[in-house]
Design a protein around this nucleic acid. Sequence first.
RNA 1: GGCCCCGUCGUCUAGCGGUUAGGACAUUACCCUUUCACGGUAGAGAUCAUGGGUUCGAAUCCCAUCGGGGUCACCA
Length: 507
Amino acid sequence: MENEVRVRIAPSPTGEPHVGTAYIALFNRAFAKSHNGKFILRIEDTDQTRYTENSEKAIFESLRWLGLDWDEGPDIGGPYAPYRQSERTEIYRKYAQELLDKGLAYKCFCTKEELAEMRTRQEKEKRPAVGYFASDSPCRNLTPEQIKEKEEQGIPYVIRLKVPDDDPDALITFFDHTRKKEISRKYSEIDDQVLLKADGFPTYHLANVVDDHLMGITHVMRGEEWIVSTPKHILLYKAFGWKVPEFYHLSLLRNPDKNKSKISKRKNPVSLRWFRAAGYTPEALLNFLALMGYSRNTEGKTKEEISAMDIFTMDELDKEFDPARISTSGPAFDYEKLDSINNTYTERMSIDEFVKYQSERTAYLMKYLGVLAEEVKTRFRRFDKEVNSITDFFFRMKMNYNSKEFKKAKISFEEAGKVLKAVKKVFKDNATKLNTPEEFRECLANIVEKNGFDNRGLHMTVRVAVAGVGESLPLYESLALLGVYRCITRFDEAISALEKFAKEETK
RNA sequence: GGCCCCGUCGUCUAGCGGUUAGGACAUUACCCUUUCACGGUAGAGAUCAUGGGUUCGAAUCCCAUCGGGGUCACCA
């Protein structure tokens, strides 16, 4: 199978499984299926500092839930195992050594401080580009004796690629199949990339190129954020004397705000677990995601036919998939449209399917809620009262507050506004440190103490801001599950609502 | 800031030298309905970012400008 199409998705297990991963996976898989090829899952866990325990499991689980199953991967094996980069470090070391032997890479002993110094110097000189370039590299031309001496002193080092500097104006060019054009960068714009870190782990660039080659990847479909580093990868393929795969860069999903920045958890829910718990069906999410980056061929179709073409299954996509129809502009993630698509899928279900999906979803919701699941039970007075009404606030995009609820805090609207502004600031400043319920508890307690706020008033105000109502699930656990960024978003909405309520009252 | 990418209704998009610029979501009105939702019908909504070319003719080709995004880590 020399000409077999082989594509891959290579997520990094750092935190929640990202909707962007599913987006890229979907197109890779459709491409493989349409060519009778293979779709591979590879885990890129070379950053020990960002690795989180359950993240890999969550990626498997979420992708499987969506039906985006893979032909080879860390959990099912395959002819090119292992598929987890942390288990392949020997391989990367070997290839880094090969480059060293060929004189195409070198050991760099610079410290973090020296690197920082170099950076500030370059910025001061107003250089067009900042980085570890040949002309700036103190380590590039170290003699074998100097290297030996430093090694004997036990100075830690990294291995850097020696970017050719004989013709700085020469171009490195590749063809981007999504944009259908060549993209180039000058050699002079590329600095000596780190290949192997001081801890012996490879960087993305090395591991990715080595694995793609070893695993026989023929087509690389990945996010647009990689477009500028593709030339670096080309350089690596050349250094090894390997065949370069074909590249497709997909535009990034964007936040639906005016600026349309790359979609982020700071502004919107992006976790696949969230979408699942919120009650979206896999078919609907996939259909929606496909719509964001792909358009079907409408040639020769009637208006009526076209109007029904937005709804399609992955099987249909796999059959007709044409990579030339992937779009290049960054689509804003329209949660309302997702809802609408979800609706058309649920209304098409049989009653049996509907019931089955409802119970599957409820089961997952309880899992998602974690410690809060117990609390849901205690507030669940009757079975005809839905669990959803108690947990709904985790999935709302807009709160549309009612002034009556804020009155339960027994402090004025102005005071409540002040409280929320203070809490918001603290949350923002300590965003990365607020994860567990306990951390939220301490945080709020500190705010009460420092500002002399009414304890009950603050807690009720925060509760209403976050849940929309005065009676809801335990606060600290709710804040933790919601996540600090979505809390902040709600505070923003609550603060302006409170201002409005205050004005109306004085009228 | 340097470099790279992108630019059609509010949003996702069709279009690839000659179209009344089409569809979907959202939105408006009406119909259906004892309510809501679904469904149906009709409508509004895009001087195709702007300005120059090329051409008999440009959303479609070229250039410039502007706007947005990405990237400049021992993160991926």
